[in-house]
Every structure is written in structure tokens, then in C-alpha cells.
Design a protein around this nucleic acid. Structure first.
Length: 801
RNA sequence: GCCGGGAUGGCGGAAUUGGUAGACGCAAUAGACUCAAAAUCUAUCGAUCGCAAGGUCAUGAGGGUUCGAUUCCCUCUUCCGGCACCA
């Protein structure tokens, strides 16, 4: 009966099936199918010179398992891949080596492609995209022009975040703790004219529509925090001898009677407009200048000691109490949030309290419950010192007091418009010219793509201009409108541009007439399941939702949200528990593992190592366990007999395992799915014989995890067609439950023994059976049983006095 | 400071509508095979008391609810992530 099995040769088997899948176009997605579609997406990799990272392998394998399962469940699956190829590392490497970024990118993508193929991902390689390919960025530029035409892309002179090391302006999202997200250098402020995208116009929808999508809760929370929606009131203070008034935003209009001064941000325009009234303008001007010169890091890392200068001569009266209150300028008020001015209520706000203490300003308590001689009271309570509102609960009068004070209810967001200019070579040129007569003019579609000119030097400049500005031949051009003299925009787009719409291009990646055909978009979008890193939640994910909503408004895409479901993976840390990096020397190369133990072992290990959503430490030692598992499954072939009836236990366990794996994949609990299959393997090993059906059902549910070996076994057992399109095994509900139940017997809550009874036995039967047991009787010891707790098929507990 | 998520053997981790804590894997120890080693197989593998049967303790710390708590509640310690002068 024992079949002779060949040795498990991973290299031979894996190469064989990778070739087979490619030749048979096993994963090429077609639109004409009548099957239900499934669009699975991973964040496309940045093709760095370091090659594929084991972190890529983890997230790609997870989505690969899901996609392979979906195919077996009868879906028409699209699982595409491409390259997010524009970016600083390539440009820096080009500067260092003198090799053109295009050449480097080609070289790097070739390495990545080969590596990805060696791991057996079921990508549709025919739809590969590359954001730095002019055929691709033609459409990135075109979409930009749609924003421009609708006034959502605009130029603005402003203070920007400048990284002196990268020599590049940064979006607010790219500044972390006052440092450049990429290189860690302290960020400076510079005044520059920048292209902006008006993402704030979509703040409301970006926040509200989160309700309708299936994102992990923590992802929704992060996006919500980032958008920072805040309900409050706008109230105003008239200025004596001036047409102007100070408008403030507050979430606490209930504290209005407690206002003892008003503060303007240093950037506030009103300060200059009131210049003639301000008697100490020199002092004020100096304060503003100092505040501007503070770098982001100084402004945030300072001890938060509040500073400010009174605008002497500016007279403001409290609208209700008619008391005269002073006006200050202070950098604790942010120019870009709310109205750039606040009403200060020291009794009920920590920051105002600190400021008032320092400058000896009055503190008026208007909500009872705290002790304002010690600290500000920010909780709710009963109104006092508030005229007709005295005695009422503060939370109930918000709207009423706003109206009484002549203000209105408003909504404010923390989100700011997206700084879209970068002063670098390796990005999409902004397809706009500056005409002496016509101003800013968009290129027309026939002039797209506006290709990056070939240059020898890519060095960014210290004066904050893009290297493209040095190529006068390219810069000087004709206005497409009037034919007159014009200059090209020399800034390029940020690397978030190409990734904001790549999932749309996958549906029709070769189209040269449109960014994608509407029918294809209608068939494939929205993306059904998108997995990626948490680090992209406030950048890429928010940006692409914004682009998508804009395209939807322009009737260019059929849905208003790009992704139905979004999950996130955890990082893989080096063996030392630190983030993997070249400088630490703790980087693991997947090629080595594929060569020595095989892609299937690597895939199994990466899925088995721990919970998918958590950061986890890599362990080269532990991979051997996954390899052993695979070999054990391989060797089970010896026990397979065509016409054999498995024992009830085996059937039971097989059905339970099918159910477990089916459910676990959906919940991304890959580690427990594999442990379930290991348990099944251990059990099958202890059998004399196993049926072909049982073995092959097992091979089917294992195939998304270890596709190469499973194809091989599938073929060994005489199957002519690929396992890829076999149907996913169904578990038999009736065979999920054993005929026997193990009952835990407790006395006073302590486990004393277990007994086996017929499943669904009644309390009477179980009790009788339990009381026959010596170990139980011993502990009851003739004491009186005062209570019995029984749970069917689980437990019987005797409580004795 | 605010919000969110954790803390379980030597290690990675299982198990929660409250019901046998430590599944599965790694490492380790002993044995089989071998001239030997590797690989493989078998057994043991939380702590502690005991010759054993068996007992007791144990899921970051302390308390509570319960017949029964890793799971629920309160207080605290600590780690990780996010936001942070957002009025």
C-alpha cells in the first residue's frame, strides 16, 4: 500500500509551477467573465535599490491567500501589481552614481519583478503600471489639470516647511515632530509660492463618508483625528474707531461671560490693518518677526511657556458686559486654524489660565464646580456670573448664548490644503505654463505627457528652486493660448500624486485615450479589499480618497469611494527587535530563504509567525518549523488510499479544519489557520491510511498558503487542471460535531476530572455519570451539594457547603 | 496632556456572549537510528511539594463581582501606536 514518494525538491517544484502559471495565464484577469468580480489590492512597492523586503512578502502573501481563496470560491479576481517609482531615494542615488533615475528605476523594477515572481504571488502581470512611465504620468498630469480647471489646484505664496537636507518643501503631513519625515533633519520655515490642492473643500465628505466604508476602526479614527472636525461658534468683538472686528472661533461659547482678553495669531492680517491705532507697534512687529523665525521644532518643543504682546491702543468691548478687554498677539494661537483669533477665558481653559497668570489678567469664573484659584476648570457645570444664564447647565445653553452674543454656529477642520509642489527632478512635471499675457495656462491633452527633460545634473538647489529651473531651453516656451512668451512651471508633483489613482489605472493600464475606460471602471471598481501599512493612513489613503471623490464629482469614476474595505499589516522587525535598516545591518533578504527553504516555507512562516496586524520580530531559526510542516504534508502522500473510509474522528477534524481555515482567512487570522492545519497534519500522520478525498481537500485549503507544493501534489494525484480554479471545499455542518462530548467536572469551581458522554446529554445523565467518578466523590466527601451549574456539552459544577 | 491597543512558559504566540490557561511552532533535555554528526522518529518540557497517586500556586500589580475570571468592573505600573498650544 505504501506509495513511494519522491523527495520534496522545492526549487524544482516552485520553478515548474511559476512557469506553468505564466504560460497558462492563470492569473490574468478578464472583464468578460460572468463571474462575480473581486478586486484585491496591496500598496504597490517603491522599487528601491535595496530590493524586495520581507515586509513586502508578508502583506503580499496575505492578499495573495485571500485572492487565491476567492478564485476557488468562484470569483473573477483582479490582483494587480506595479511600481510607485517616483521618489527621493532614486533621485539621491542618481546624484551619487551619475546614473539616470530612469535607468535606476528600470534596474530596480527588474530585480523586484524577479523576486516577486520567485515567491509565487498570483499577480496579473499584464496590467503592471509604473508611475514614472510617461504613458502613466500623462494621466496623472491630466487629472491635475482637471483640478486646475475647477480651481482646486491653485498657487499660493506662503510659509512652507522646508527640509534643508533634502532641499525640498514638505506637506504638513510629511513633518513629524518638527522634523522631515524622510531624513529627520529639523524643518525650517520658508516663504515660497506653492501649488496647492484644495483638499479642505472635501473635508466634510472625507469625514462623513467614513461611515459607509469597512475600514478598521483605528484607521477611521486616525483619519477622523487628522481631518479634525470640530463644532463650535463664531463670535465677534467690535473694535472702537474701526470698521474691522475680531472674529473668534470657540467650542465653548458657554464661557463667553468669562472672556477677559482676546488673542490674535502673529500671522493675523488685522494687526497690520490696525497699525495706526497700535501705540507700541515696534514692539508688536518685533514679536511677530521672532515668532516667524522660530522653526517648527522650536515652536513645539519649547517648554510651552506662553509669550505675547498687548496691542496697546486697540480698544475692544465685551459685546454683552461692555467691559473693555485688552487684545494680545501671541504665538500660542495658530494662524491657520479657526479664524486665527481666540477669545481667552482663563477660568476655563488651561492655556488661557497660564497666559493670564503670567500677564496678570483677570480670571472670571462663569461655571461652578472647580477651584479657579488653583487651576482652570474645564469640566461642565452650572453657570454663574453670566447674567440671564445663571443657574443653568452650561451644556444646554450653547446655541442660545451664541445667538444672544450675535454669533453663529460653525464647523471647523484641522485639515489644511495639500502642498503639492516639490522642488525636485524625479517627479511629474506640473503641466502648466506661465504666460506673460494670459497668466497660468494649462497644457492641452495633446501636449501631454509633458515629459521630464533629460539632464545630467539633478541636484536640488539651495535657493529652493527645482533643478528643472536651470534648463532654460525647457523652461522657455510658448503659451498654448496666445503663442506668446511663456515659462514652464518647474516644480514637480509629490510622490503621492501617482499613487492617488493607480488602482484605477489597473483596470485599463494600456489605455492611451483615457486614464481608464468607464466600462472597465464600472466592472472592477471599487476595490473590494485594500491592505496596506498604518503609516499611509493619513497620507496616501486620505489623498487617494480625495482624488477619487473629485473624479466622481467630475463623473469620471462610477463610485464615490475607492476602497470598500481597508485593513493594515504589522511591520516585521529585525532579529534584534529593531526596525530593519541597512545601517543596523539587520536586514533579511527573502532570496536567501527562497533558495534554501523555498517560497512555500517562507510564505507559511510569514503567515504563521504571529498576528498579521501586529509588529513582530523576525526569527530565522523559526522558519524551520514551517519547512518541517510542509515536508510532513508532502510525506502524507504515502498514506493515501483511493477507496478508504476515514474514521469518524478524521472526518470530524477535517471538517473543523476546513471551517477554521475558511473563517480565519476572512479575519486575517492566518497564524491560527496554519496551526489548525498543523493539528490536522499531526492527526493524519497518526493514521494508518487516509482517503484520497480527505488528503486532497486538505491540499485545497492549504493551496493559497503553499501554492507550489499543492499544485504538485494535485497533479501527482492525476488531476490535469490547475488547483487554482478548483472549488473551495465546503465543510459539512452535520460533521462538525462529535457524537461524544467531553464534560469538565468541577467541585466548587475547581476542575477535578473530565468525563465523556453522548453529545447533548441532559443534566440528569451528566450528574449521574459524574457522581460515579471517584475523583469527584472524593471532593464532595459527603458534604451537602447546595448548587449545581450545568452547561450542555461543557461543564458540570457541584457547589458543596 | 488627550485618544487607541497591549502585558500569558526560555522564545513567537493560542484560548474571551466568563466554563479544562499555555493550542501550534521554535529552543531545550533524554532516548532510538548512525562509526559519528546532521536529518528523522519517540518521550519530556509553567513553577512548586510529593516515591507516586495527587495537591498547591500561576495570564503585569492590587482589589471587586461570580459556583467559576486571561476574559467583566475599579485603582495602579509599564510598553507600543496616533494626535498634540486645534481654542
Amino acid at each position: 500500500m505504501k506509495n513511494k514518494t519522491t523527495e520534496y525538491n522545492h526549487t524544482k517544484i516552485e520553478k515548474k509551477w511559476q512557469k506553468f502559471w505564466e504560460k497558462n495565464k492563470s492569473f490574468v484577469a478578464k472583464e468578460d467573465s460572468k463571474k462575480k468580480k473581486f478586486y484585491g489590492l496591496i500598496e504597490f512597492p517603491y522599487p528601491s535599490g535595496d530590493g524586495l523586503h520581507i515586509g513586502h512578502v508578508r502583506s503580499n502573501t496575505a492578499m495573495d491567500i485571500i485572492c487565491r481563496k476567492r478564485r476557488m470560491e468562484g470569483y473573477n479576481v483582479l490582483y494587480p501589481i506595479g511600481w510607485d517609482a517616483f521618489g527621493l531615494p532614486t533621485e539621491n542615488s542618481a546624484i551619487k552614481t551619475g546614473v539616470h533615475p530612469t535607468v535606476l528605476t528600470k534596474k530596480n523594477t527588474n530585480v523586484f519583478r524577479k523576486q516577486l515572481k520567485s515567491i509565487g504571488f498570483s499577480f496579473d502581470w499584464t496590467r503592471e503600471v509604473n508611475t514614472s512611465d510617461p504613458k502613466y504620468y500623462k494621466w496623472t498630469q491630466w487629472i491635475f489639470l482637471q483640478f486646475f480647471k475647477k480651481g482646486l489646484a491653485y498657487k499660493k505664496r506662503m510659509l512652507i516647511n522646508w527640509c534643508p537636507k533634502c532641499k525640498i518643501g514638505l506637506a504638513n503631513e510629511e513633518v513629524v515632530d518638527g522634523k522631515c519625515e524622510r531624513c529627520g533633519a529639523p524643518v525650517e520655515k520658508r516663504e515660497k509660492e506653492q501649488w496647492m490642492l484644495a483638499i479642505t473643500k472635501y473635508a466634510d465628505r472625507l469625514e462623513k463618508d467614513l461611515e459607509g466604508v469597512n475600514y478598521l476602526e483605528k484607521i477611521k479614527t486616525q483619519q477622523k483625528n487628522w481631518i479634525g472636525k470640530s463644532q463650535g461658534s463664531e463670535l465677534w468683538f467690535n473694535i472702537a474707531n474701526s470698521e474691522e472686528k475680531i472674529i473668534v472661533f470657540t467650542t465653548r461659547p458657554d464661557t463667553f461671560y468669562g472672556v477677559t482678553y482676546v488673542v490674535l495669531a502673529p500671522e493675523h492680517q488685522l494687526i497690520n490693518q490696525l497699525k495706526s491705532q497700535i501705540t507700541n507697534f515696534t514692539e508688536v512687529e518685533k514679536y511677530i518677526k521672532d515668532a516667524k523665525n522660530k522653526s517648527e521644532i522650536e515652536r513645539t518643543s519649547e517648554t510651552k511657556e506662553k509669550t505675547g504682546v498687548e496691542l496697546k491702543g486697540v480698544i475692544v468691548k465685551h459685546p454683552i458686559t461692555k467691559e473693555i478687554i485688552p487684545v494680545y498677539v501671541s504665538d500660542y494661537v495658530l494662524g491657520h486654524y479657526g479664524t486665527g483669533a481666540v477669545m481667552a477665558v482663563p477660568a476655563h481653559d488651561d492655556r488661557d489660565y497660564a497666559f493670564a497668570k503670567k500677564y496678570n489678567l483677570p480670571i472670571i469664573e462663569v461655571i461652578s464646580g472647580g477651584d479657579i484659584s488653583k487651576q482652570a476648570y474645564i469640566e461642565d457645570g452650572i453657570m454663574i456670573n453670566s447674567g440671564k444664564f445663571d443657574g443653568r447647565k452650561n451644556t444646554e445653553i450653547v446655541k442660545e448664548i451664541t445667538e444672544y452674543a450675535g454669533g453663529k454656529m460653525v464647523t471647523t477642520y484641522k485639515l489644511r490644503d495639500w502642498i503639492f509642489s516639490r522642488q525636485h527632478y524625479w517627479g511629474e512635471p506640473i503641466p502648466v505654463v506661465n504666460c506673460e499675457k494670459c497668466g497660468l495656462v494649462a497644457l492641452s491633452l495633446k501636449d501631454l505627457p509633458l515629459k521630464l527633460p533629460m539632464v545630467k545634473k539633478y541636484q536640488p538647489t539651495d535657493n529652493g528652486e527645482s533643478p528643472l529651473a536651470l534648463i532654460t531651453k525647457w523652461v522657455n516656451t510658448k503659451c498654448p493660448n496666445c503663442g506668446g512668451k511663456a515659462k514652464r512651471e518647474t516644480d514637480t508633483m509629490p510622490n503621492w500624486a501617482g499613487s492617488s489613482w493607480y488602482y484605477l489605472r489597473y483596470t485599463d493600464s494600456k489605455n492611451n485615450k483615457e486614464f481608464a475606460d468607464m466600462d472597465k471602471l464600472k466592472y472592477w471598481t471599487p476595490v473590494d479589499w485594500y491592505n496596506g501599512g498604518m503609516e499611509h493612513v493619513t497620507l496616501h489613503l486620505l489623498y487617494s480618497r480625495f482624488w477619487h471623490k473629485f473624479l466622481f464629482d467630475e463623473k469620471l469614476v462610477p463610485t464615490d469611494e475607492p476602497y470598500l474595505k481597508r485593513t493594515a499589516h504589522g511591520f516585521i522587525l529585525g532579529e534584534d527587535g529593531e526596525k530593519m535598516s541597512k545601517s543596523r545591518g539587520n536586514v533579511i533578504n527573502p532570496d536567501e530563504v527562497v533558495k534554501n527553504l523555498g517560497a512555500d516555507s517562507l510564505r507559511i512562516y510569514e503567515m504563521f509567525m504571529g498576528p498579521f496586524d501586529q509588529a513582530i520580530t523576525w526569527s530565522t531559526d523559526n522558519i524551520i518549523g514551517s519547512r518541517r510542516f510542509i515536508e510532513r504534508v508532502w510525506k502524507l502522500q504515502e498514506k493515501v488510499v483511493s477507496n478508504y473510509s476515514d474514521s469518524e474522528n478524521v472526518i470530524l477534524l477535517l471538517n473543523q479544519t476546513i471551517k477554521k481555515v475558511t473563517d480565519d482567512i476572512e479575519n486575517m487570522n492566518f497564524n491560527t489557520a496554519i496551526s489548525g492545519m498543523m493539528i490536522l497534519t499531526n492527526s493524519l500522520e497518526s493514521q494508518e491510511k487516509i482517503s484520497k478525498k480527505t488528503y486532497l481537500d486538505f491540499i485545497k485549503i492549504l493551496s493559497p498558503f503553499a501554492p507550489h507544493m499543492c499544485e504538485e501534489i494535485w497533479q501527482i494525484f492525476g488531476n490535469k487542471k490547475t488547483i487554482v480554479l478548483e472549488s473551495w471545499p465546503k465543510f459539512d455542518e452535520t460533521k462538525l460535531i462529535s457524537s461524544k462530548a467531553k464534560i469538565v467536572v468541577q467541585v466548587n469551581g475547581k476542575v477535578r476530572t473530565t468525563i465523556e458522554v453522548q453529545v447533548d446529554s441532559t443534566q440528569d445523565i451528566v450528574e449521574k455519570e459524574a457522581l460515579k467518578n471517584e475523583a469527584v466523590v472524593k471532593w464532595i466527601d459527603n458534604k451537602k451539594i447546595v448548587k449545581r451549574i450545568f452547561i450542555k456539552n461543557k461543564i458540570i459544577n457541584f457547589v458543596v457547603a
